[in-house]
Amino acid sequence: MIINNLKLIREKKKISQSELAALLESSRQTINGIEKNKYNPSLQLALKIAYYLNTPLEDIFQWQ
């Protein structure tokens, strides 16, 4: 199971779900699903999230 700190990191950087979704060329619903652990992002999307949040991938997503 993958757990994530996306919501915590996103809020700390003062970025809304909609703003992050626009940067990622994704939907706000996708970001919401990832944050609620209802959806696991593809590797490509996970890497883009890490890039746009300027945060190491392993700080956002962790195996448990």
Rank of each mutant, 00 (worst) to 15 (best):
M1E: 04
M1P: 10
I2E: 04
I2S: 08
I2Y: 10
I2T: 10
I3F: 10
I3A: 07
I3Q: 08
I3W: 07
I3S: 08
N4S: 02
N4C: 10
N4W: 06
N5E: 03
N5R: 09
N5D: 03
N5P: 00
N5H: 07
N5V: 06
L6S: 01
L6N: 01
L6K: 00
L6A: 00
L6G: 03
K7Q: 11
K7S: 07
L8I: 14
L8C: 15
L8W: 08
I9P: 01
I9F: 09
R10Q: 02
E11R: 10
E11A: 08
E11M: 13
K12C: 12
K12P: 01
K12L: 13
K12M: 13
K12V: 08
K12E: 11
K12G: 11
K13R: 12
K14S: 10
K14C: 11
K14N: 14
I15N: 01
I15R: 03
I15E: 00
S16A: 06
S16T: 13
S16G: 07
Q17C: 05
Q17W: 05
Q17P: 04
S18I: 11
S18L: 11
S18G: 12
E19F: 10
L20K: 00
L20E: 01
L20Y: 02
L20H: 00
L20S: 02
A21W: 06
A21M: 03
A21L: 04
A22P: 03
A22K: 14
A22L: 12
L23V: 11
L23N: 07
L23W: 13
L24H: 01
L24Y: 01
E25Y: 09
E25M: 13
S26C: 15
S26E: 15
S26M: 15
S26F: 09
S26H: 09
S27W: 05
S27H: 08
S27D: 15
S27G: 06
S27N: 13
R28V: 15
R28D: 09
R28S: 12
Q29K: 14
T30A: 09
T30I: 15
T30Y: 15
I31V: 11
I31A: 01
G33D: 15
G33R: 15
G33T: 07
I34W: 04
I34V: 04
I34Y: 02
E35A: 03
E35Q: 03
E35I: 05
E35V: 03
K36R: 13
N37I: 03
K38L: 15
K38I: 14
Y39C: 14
Y39F: 14
Y39P: 01
N40R: 15
N40W: 13
S42C: 06
S42A: 05
S42D: 09
L43G: 04
L43A: 06
L43Y: 14
L43V: 10
L43I: 12
Q44R: 13
Q44N: 11
Q44K: 13
L45S: 01
L45C: 10
A46L: 06
A46N: 02
A46W: 04
A46Q: 05
L47S: 09
K48N: 06
K48S: 07
K48M: 10
I49Y: 00
I49M: 05
I49Q: 00
A50P: 00
A50M: 03
A50V: 04
A50G: 03
A50S: 10
Y51F: 13
Y51V: 07
Y51R: 09
Y51H: 11
Y52P: 00
Y52Q: 07
Y52M: 10
Y52W: 11
L53T: 02
L53G: 01
L53A: 01
L53P: 00
N54K: 11
N54G: 11
N54A: 12
N54T: 08
N54H: 10
N54V: 07
N54Q: 14
T55F: 06
T55E: 10
T55W: 04
T55L: 06
P56L: 06
P56Q: 08
P56Y: 06
P56I: 06
P56E: 07
P56T: 06
P56H: 06
E58R: 11
E58T: 10
D59M: 11
D59N: 09
D59T: 08
D59K: 11
I60F: 05
I60K: 02
I60G: 01
I60C: 03
I60H: 00
I60Q: 02
I60W: 03
F61Q: 00
F61N: 00
W63M: 04
W63R: 03
W63H: 02
W63Q: 03
W63I: 04
W63K: 03
W63E: 02
Q64E: 14
Q64R: 13
Q64W: 08
Q64L: 06
Q64F: 08
